[in-house]
């Protein structure tokens, strides 16, 4: 019988696979699942992957204050980073500011954080948003915190690499400036993804099913990964318990 796993565990392993070969992964604000994925990728790489977590003391060797994350990215020393978004559109634009007409928004989000910079400079930016619905994945964002692509001539070594949601994994095609459905999570179908995605995207004839975590990976997530993420995200770590123990 295949092992039982939670949604969070499936997402952690899905994101971690996207980090293969990255030397330095940085994790920003409000990112417990991406942070856990970074620690899983680190465990797979035998500890060789450097993981920097904003807000951590144990997993943050920066000594130059808040600006160092951005300077480090500008120097080309960060290979992967994560962005969320209250809205994400089909061109990879992200909105972290709010819904409605700026500045008198109907719903205010926290703000753009470092997205308007890191999205340009980090080669592998992974968009992560657990809620996969037409209100999140929209045809066009209400406010562009950070654009998915840039005009020729704009300095832009970085940009979107993939989008991971609670239902599916997409890759991003920079030349077509569109997402492509790579795999649907267990329990989803190409039709259910189409129905819950507000933007248009490319899809292969038969998209794969996202491969669930195996026993060994689950042991890593429930052991060292959970211990590492607990420092910054104690509430998340407390929920990251095996389903059979719950």
């Amino acid at each position: 019988m295949p092992p039982r796993f939670s949604q969070a565990e499936l997402l952690i392993v899905t994101v971690a696979r996207l980090l293969e070969g990255v030397e330095h992964v940085a994790v920003g604000a409000s990112s417990p699942i991406p942070g856990s994925a970074a620690f899983l990728a680190q465990a797979w790489a035998g500890g060789e992957t450097r993981v920097t977590v904003l807000g951590s003391r144990r997993n943050n060797d920066f000594t130059d204050g808040g600006r160092e994350l951005f300077d480090c990215a500008a120097q080309g020393r960060i290979g992967a980073f994560f962005l969320g978004g209250g809205q994400i559109d089909g061109r990879g634009n992200v909105n972290l500011v709010g819904l409605g007409h700026y500045p008198n928004l109907d719903v205010r989000f926290p703000g753009s954080f470092g997205s308007a910079y890191l999205y340009f400079l980090v080669p592998r930016v992974i968009l992560f948003r657990e809620e996969h619905s037409p209100r999140v994945l929209v045809p066009q964002v209400d406010f562009i915190s950070a654009p998915g692509t840039s005009a020729p001539g704009v300095h832009r070594p970085g940009g979107p690499h993939a989008l991971v949601t609670g239902r599916a994994l997409f890759s991003f095609d920079k030349t077509r400036t569109r997402f492509r459905l790579e795999s649907v999570h267990p329990g989803e179908t190409p039709a259910s993804i189409r129905a819950t995605t507000g933007f248009d995207y490319d899809d292969p004839a038969t998209p794969a099913t996202t491969i669930p975590p195996d026993e060994k990976t689950l042991a890593l997530i429930r052991g060292p990964v959970r211990a590492a993420i607990a420092e910054v995200y104690p509430r998340f770590a407390a929920r990251l318990v095996p389903p059979e123990a719950a």
Binding site: A74, A116, Y117, S145, A146, P147, S150
Partner: peptide, 27 residues
Amino acid sequence: TCPAIHAALQASEKGLPFLPSRGIIGS
């Protein structure tokens, strides 16, 4: 955006009228 605030404070640190920043264009 975070690095814009850091850079604008660094401009004052150096007594400069402004500092240039990458990114942001298209936002």
